[in-house]
């Protein structure tokens, strides 16, 4: 999932529209959080999914498959909200009010997850970090973000390779051996991360790195028109949600 989302963000059709997409997603997220969830959530989820799949041409299979994992967590989480606990009699029971809360919360969260995934699949990391720079987030944090981003994929690949090698040597055949090998994998990963950091440091120092890591982003193709559309769609969703919400 890690590689798929990142690759998608760098190859989709709207990858140079970071500003408008941030505005679009912020607007939709505002609708998801503030408008009545029963009315707003379907519109928000539909708008975010359409933007990602139809607009930016994010592969539908990837987008909806990625949504399945949080959807599973939400479904199980809804059960806990439906249950009420009477501490005096130490009794569990079903609660109608809890079920209503569960429905509203699950819908709101599902809409929110769809919007965040839409943003993650469309806006490349370097672009949202550039937006954070414009928002005057401290440079040291942005630098840390970029450096962590550079190490994530290498370490993820290293960890998978270590686990696969251990698995091939029957490293997980008993719980005891599995525990010891998990610790070995983590220790080796930690040492590899230090080695990678040292190599990265040498490489960056050779290029004159002091305290800022410039990253070139493709020139933005955003226009006033795209900003207007990006603001208009969430506004329409909000109006529709408020009108429908008032009628319920």
């Amino acid at each position: 999932m890690l590689h798929a989302i990142d690759a998608c963000a760098h190859t989709n059709r709207w990858r140079t529209q970071g500003g408008p997409m941030a505005l679009f997603c912020a607007g939709l997220m505002g609708c998801a959080l503030l408008a009545p969830p029963l009315a707003a959530a379907p519109f928000v989820a539909a708008a975010a999914s359409a933007a990602a799949v139809l607009g930016a041409r994010v592969p539908a299979a990837l987008f909806f498959r990625t949504l399945l994992v949080p959807a599973g967590f939400l479904a199980t989480g809804a059960l806990a909200l439906c249950v009420t606990l009477d501490l005096e009699h130490a009794r569990l029971g079903f609660s109608g009010a809890g079920a209503a809360t569960a429905l509203a919360t699950t819908l709101r969260a599902a809409a929110g997850v769809t919007v965040t995934l839409c943003f993650a699949c469309i806006v490349p990391t370097a672009q949202w970090i550039a937006l954070l720079r414009r928002a005057r987030v401290p440079a040291v944090v942005l630098d840390l973000l970029l450096l962590v981003y550079r190490t994530l994929f290498v370490l993820d690949a290293e960890f998978l390779a270590i686990r696969r090698a251990q698995d091939n040597r029957l490293g997980f055949r008993t719980a005891r051996v599995a525990g010891r090998n998990a610790a070995r994998a983590v220790a080796v990963l930690f040492l590899r991360s230090l080695q990678r950091a040292a190599r990265l440091e040498r490489g960056l120092a050779a290029r004159g790195y002091v305290d800022r890591l410039p990253v070139l982003t493709p020139p933005s193709t955003a226009t006033r028109h795209t900003y207007a559309v990006a603001a208009l769609v969430p506004a329409l969703v909000a109006v529709a949600a408020v009108v429908l919400g008032a009628g319920q």
Partner: peptide, 20 residues
């Protein structure tokens, strides 16, 4: 930064729970 990457990879090992 390497510590951050390490924490990310370690904490990406998920188990479902029943509270959202």
């Amino acid at each position: 930064a390497a510590g951050g990457g390490f924490t990310f990879v370690l904490s990406a090992l998920k188990l479902p729970s029943v509270t959202g």
